[in-house]
Computed example of a mutant assay.
Amino acid sequence: MFSVTVRDHLMVAHSLRGEVFGPAQRLHGATFLVDATFRRAELDADGIVVDIGLATGVLGAVLGAFNYRNLDDEPAFAGVNTSTEFLAKEIADRLAERVRAGDLGEGARGLAGITVTLHESHVAWASYELAL
Rank of each mutant, 00 (worst) to 15 (best):
A30L: 07
A30N: 13
T31L: 09
F32K: 13
F32Q: 10
L33V: 14
V34I: 15
V34R: 12
V34E: 11
V34A: 12
D35I: 02
D35G: 04
D35Q: 09
A36V: 05
T37Q: 15
F38A: 05
A41W: 05
D44A: 06
D44N: 15
A45V: 13
A45P: 04
D46K: 06
G47M: 09
V49F: 05
V50A: 07
D51T: 02
D51P: 08
I52C: 07
G53Q: 05
G53K: 10
T56M: 06
T56Y: 05
V58P: 08
V58C: 07
L59V: 14
L59D: 10
L59M: 10
G60R: 14
G60N: 14
V62S: 09
V62Y: 11
L63A: 12
A65M: 04
F66D: 09
F66E: 06
F66H: 15
N67D: 15
N67Y: 01
N67W: 04
N70R: 11
N70K: 07
L71V: 10
P75L: 04
A76M: 10
A78S: 12
G79D: 02
G79V: 07
G79L: 04
G79C: 11
G79T: 08
V80C: 11
S83D: 14
E85N: 11
L87G: 03
L87S: 06
L87D: 03
K89S: 11
A92P: 05
A92T: 03
E97Y: 01
E97R: 14
E97H: 09
V99C: 05
G102E: 03
D103F: 03
D103I: 01
L104R: 06
L104S: 06
G105C: 02
E106I: 01
G110N: 08
L111Q: 00
A112T: 10
A112N: 13
A112I: 00
G113V: 02
I114Q: 02
I114E: 00
I114G: 00
T115K: 07
T115Q: 12
V116Y: 03
